[in-house]
Amino acid sequence: MIDRVIKSTLRFYAELQKLKNTLAILVAVALPLFVAFLSFVIYLSEGHKLIIAGTNPWHGYIYHLQKFWAGLLLPLTIIIEASLINSIEHSNNMWKQIYVLPVSKFAVYFYKLLAFIFLNILMALSLTFFIQLFGFLLIFIKPEFGFDSPSLIKESLLLSLKMMLASSAIIGFQFLLSFNFRSFVIPTVIGFCITVGMGIASSWKHIEFLPYSYPSLSTNSQDARIWNTYVIIALLSLVLTSAAGFYVSSKKEIS
């Protein structure tokens, strides 16, 4: 049992080692930083219009930033990250090295998917961290905004986590696409088209049937609870796409 845990940990660690010197980690940290900084700049210049007097400014600050993140940037970042993490293997046809190792084909897919989910968790944590960081900077730069109120770090973290869970369907599907297509362009374009399509169809009455809209829909309610229908369906979609991925991996032929 202990031996299995050690082996699993080492395999997961190996997947993380592959990310060294790549854009994958940089993107996971830099994009949340960029969005939080953008929001910070907007609050610096237009904060007096955005803050409702007598309320905790953190509430609107966190909610509006994360809503923007969930609607557009989160799906796009997942799409790019999925392509980046799989391109590590596609370049130089690393698959032929991976698939001749005495490792099950199931494990090849599973540990890479796990590393991808880790990147998404890192993104959610980075977003929360930078929201808090810039919020605290506002205390000193714009004390009149009232950011010295409770910073709602728990709510912010839960909202980030909820968005991440609600994006599980995107995570599963984009990973499956990028795992299969050697070209960086095909899965990225497919993902971009679906995301833009979701944006256009956001007011469509059946939008709830389209999992790419779940990160955005899950933030509609400011309810701090993590579990809602979108999150559960998204997680089920991740399970289904992963099962498809395991099947594809087991049948994969390497040229």
Binding site: K20, N21, T22, I88, S91, N92, W95, K96, Q97
Partner: peptide
């Protein structure tokens, strides 16, 4: 152990 044509290696590492 195998080496198929050109060695498959992570060039960024």
């Amino acid at each position: 152990g195998s080496l198929i044509e050109y060695p498959a290696l992570y060039n960024h590492l």
